[in-house]
Design a protein around this nucleic acid. Sequence first.
DNA 1: AGATGTCAAGCGGAT
DNA 2: ATCCGCTTGACATCT
Length: 299
Amino acid sequence: MAARTAPEGLRLGYPCQNRTLRATTNHTVRERNVVLGERLDQAVRANLRDLERILWWNARQGIRLFRVGQHLIPFASHPRFPWDWEERYGAEIQRLGALARSLGIRLSFHPGQYVNPGSSEPSVRDRSLRELRYTARLLARFGDPEGVVVLHGGGVYGDRQRALGRLCRALQKEEEVLRFLALENDERCWSVADLMPAARVLGVPVVFDLLHHRWRPGGLSEGEALAAALETWGGRRPKVHVASQARGGRPGAHAPYLHREDWRRLRAVLRGSGVDVMVEAKAKERAVLRILRWEGLQR
DNA sequence: AGATGTCAAGCGGAT
DNA sequence: ATCCGCTTGACATCT
């Protein structure tokens, strides 16, 4: 029996893996084993297979947003990667993209802390761009018109203006990356307000992260920062990240589930607007199901 | 068999 | 000056 579908006003998602299914899109290999093509191929096939299982499961639960793991094709941007991954897996990726679309599921990516195109170190910038191009190519292959690559601002190195300049210069000619890119505030370096100039120059939107905002509000209230971020999406459907602070954890550590008061506050400022909410919680899909129950949309 | 420690990568901050 | 955390699976090495 099909779950009731969330109204278009609110779509929820979770990152990378489904614990209920014991499925993950982050199967990988050790770097030294990249040359062993068979292991690498097995990891990719496992990721694609698990992605398909997750997509079907999500659709049944009324979950319409999913972050694909950065390791979908492990080491794809690494110099030792042995193949043309598009040639080898492109058709299958296209098929899964069509499936996601037919199920109404939006896909996103979120490269990690090593991807820092505004680094002061040229080799770091180069590596970062290669990883971002790979990620954008994946989304192009998936064919998701609403696909997003969410990236943090990276290091500040004691000079925000210069860091900002490097970030913009590194990215401003990366047409395909910019098609999908969005910048997210983090808890240490870049508040929503800090990101705005880069977002304007690059013509990319800003992802508001509730928990990060708590630790680095940058002079804006929650409502103000959220509103500022939402405006950057123009006609496109905005995306927001939500997490709760782990009790007793270091600032920014994710709690297993979303705390109800955090959800209520976000819900109040979002009201009925058409926004996608990525729930970053240790319990992954179970945290999403709990919110759907709060919303009266599940069981 | 099971348990443990390390792994491509960069930063800021704590110590 | 050095270490830790981010996230978490793979796998080499140990008991």
